[in-house]
Design a protein around this nucleic acid. Sequence first.
DNA 1: GCGTCAGTTGGACGTCCATCAAACTGTCCT
DNA 2: AGGACAGTTTGATGGACGTCCAACTGACGC
Lengths: 139, 139
Amino acid sequence: MRLLPHPATESIQLTEVLRALSDPVRMEIVVRLAARKEQTCSGVGEELGVHKSTASHHYRTLREAGVVMTRQVGRLKFMRLRRDDLDARFPGLLDAVLAAAHADDTGQAAAHADDAGQGDGAGVLAQGILTQGVPAHGE
Amino acid sequence: MRLLPHPATESIQLTEVLRALSDPVRMEIVVRLAARKEQTCSGVGEELGVHKSTASHHYRTLREAGVVMTRQVGRLKFMRLRRDDLDARFPGLLDAVLAAAHADDTGQAAAHADDAGQGDGAGVLAQGILTQGVPAHGE
DNA sequence: GCGTCAGTTGGACGTCCATCAAACTGTCCT
DNA sequence: AGGACAGTTTGATGGACGTCCAACTGACGC
């Protein structure tokens, strides 16, 4: 059993963690890792529909940011959320992010349903307060 | 008084928020915005030592992510954290991030002092568990 | 009106990133 | 030993990002 190089708990940087979590694929990985205990690279990779090397790249990003811990057992590598370390370093952050990830899922669905239903709640505000000719850069 | 286009509360995406917060400059802006109530672009720009247009770019990123609200008064533009909206969408997230930002600051200082003092606490672990010849890609 | 000021926009430049494909490393099984 | 398997590494590619500079847009104030 081997361990890969991980940043020490004290070395974990907030912006690095947030950047690691700012990619939808990696966020999904973290959510799955939070639900189940450990996961192999191929396991998540197949579920997410990304290429094997892409998944490996995301794993490296998460590992170097201090979000996950990689443990090698034989030819498998199991990933585990560094809950304790993250909680020690940034108390409550991971829980808030995971809750937010759940809220984001449900919120997306709700917003979508609302949009189809009447569409006067959310979307209009974004356009209604337009005062300059901004070409809707983001969306 | 004018308002710029902002995403509706329901449209705020978690990964977008995290990505907006993953830049040290923007994180610093958010921290300052959390401390003081409102701030002008030039105000933060000068304090952070970034170019005027760079600050404007960061403001746009934060605004499009739904993190800040921009209010134009005359030729000034005041930025304000969308605390209520963010709390409604992702309860506890902003507080956790702000607390983490504070912990990151103090943690950095402590780690640095520790590093100069004896240097056996944090940094060694990161190198001590090396088992493969990973060329320290990130740092 | 004209200069000034606050902030934005566009271009330019270098860097980083997400993705895939292919080759590679290391481990297990037979 | 040889093959199968899990992941990583290495390009390569297209896109996004952060930064600066310069030019521009609006809103004062005189």
